[in-house]
């Protein structure tokens, strides 16, 4: 559905994105993840035809975004970073205007449907200037959905929403993503983890990683970490575990729990458990720790010049081992 090849954009002498190449299928939700200024918004603006790339091509639904800009714009729904609203219009007027620009039939019916979809039906006749940030965000989303686009491009869609709304909007995006193509950018990592089928981590205009959230985790975690709690003096347990095969490191944490790290591919938890019980300790907890996408993200986007500043948690480092 979306095919991006060698996309590069320069702002004067600053290169915002470097040679991005990626695809998105129908029925896929692709997440852009990256720190501020990584090039997420720039990429989205090029995809929607708002600005042309310096080089590279974008094809959406078989149309080139520059040569067939209008065709592309017809099948794309876009929610920009700054929600594009006219404060002096009512919600309904605004959506009717947007629908008229897209030559929809049955505008009134479609506006009502979309308002229900985003949960704003009760505010249809209110002025946009009186809406809260979260409501504005939803009206912005309604505007992107009004023409039931094949491709939905959302720049930080859940920003400013309250937790209940976030859940609703995520559910909505997931629903839409079942038979449409959705690209969304976010800086909320659990969000990417929850709703995206695939995540692209972008940093300084480069794609630094691209995979399913699960695969990213598995690939980058490398070793397995397990949290261990015993009753009593936990430091006595440390030498006990250290001598086991496959153990890379054992760290005692401040709260008295232990964390060990073992070679990937083999689960030595049964062995550890047996050893501890044989030694007469009471084993309370033995729980694997997944490296969160947050840690992966920090690790991938960490500046080379500032080592360990963004390192995840106590004593854990892949390089050390």
């Amino acid at each position: 559905m979306i095919r991006v090849t060698g996309l590069t954009k320069d702002y004067g002498s600053r290169r915002a994105i470097h040679d991005l190449t990626f695809n998105a299928r129908k029925g896929e939700i692709l997440g852009f993840l990256g720190p501020n200024g990584a090039g997420k918004t720039t990429t989205m603006r090029i995809l929607t035809g708002f600005m042309p790339p310096t080089s590279g091509t974008v094809e959406i639904g078989g149309y080139d975004v520059i040569d067939h800009s209008l065709e592309v714009r017809r099948i794309v729904g876009y929610l920009p970073e700054t929600v594009p609203l006219y404060p002096d219009m009512t919600v309904r007027e605004y959506l009717e205007y947007m629908a008229s620009l897209r030559h929809l039939k049955n505008i009134e019916k479609r506006v009502t449907e979309t308002l229900e979809q985003v949960g704003m039906a009760d505010r249809a006749n209110g002025y946009i200037s009186n809406l809260s940030k979260g409501m504005r965000q939803r009206v912005g989303l309604a505007q992107a959905l009004i023409h039931q686009p094949e491709v939905l491009i959302l720049d930080e869609p859940t920003i400013g929403l309250d937790p209940a709304q976030v859940v609703n909007i995520r559910k909505l995006i997931k629903e839409i993503g079942q038979n449409k193509t959705v690209i969304l950018s976010t800086h909320i990592l659990p969000e990417a983890q929850q709703i995206c089928d695939r995540v692209m981590i972008i940093n300084k205009g480069h794609i630094v990683a691209e995979d399913t959230p699960e695969q990213l985790q598995a690939r980058l975690t490398g070793s397995q970490r397990v949290l261990l709690t015993v009753r009593g003096e936990s430091q006595d347990v440390v030498p006990l575990i250290k001598q086991l095969p496959g153990i890379l490191q054992v760290v005692e944490k401040e709260d008295g729990t232990l964390e060990y790290e073992s070679l990937p591919g083999q689960d030595i938890r049964p062995l550890v458990a047996r050893k501890i019980i044989e030694a007469g300790f009471d084993l309370l907890q033995l729980q694997p720790i997944n490296m969160s996408l947050e840690e992966i993200f920090l690790q991938l986007t960490r500046d080379e010049t500032e080592p360990s500043a963004a390192m995840p948690e106590v004593g854990y480092s892949m390089e050390e081992n």
Partner: peptide, 14 residues
Amino acid sequence: KSGTLEILLTAPVR
């Protein structure tokens, strides 16, 4: 200023 130009220029409008 309000950013609505972005939506106008990405709508199928010349």
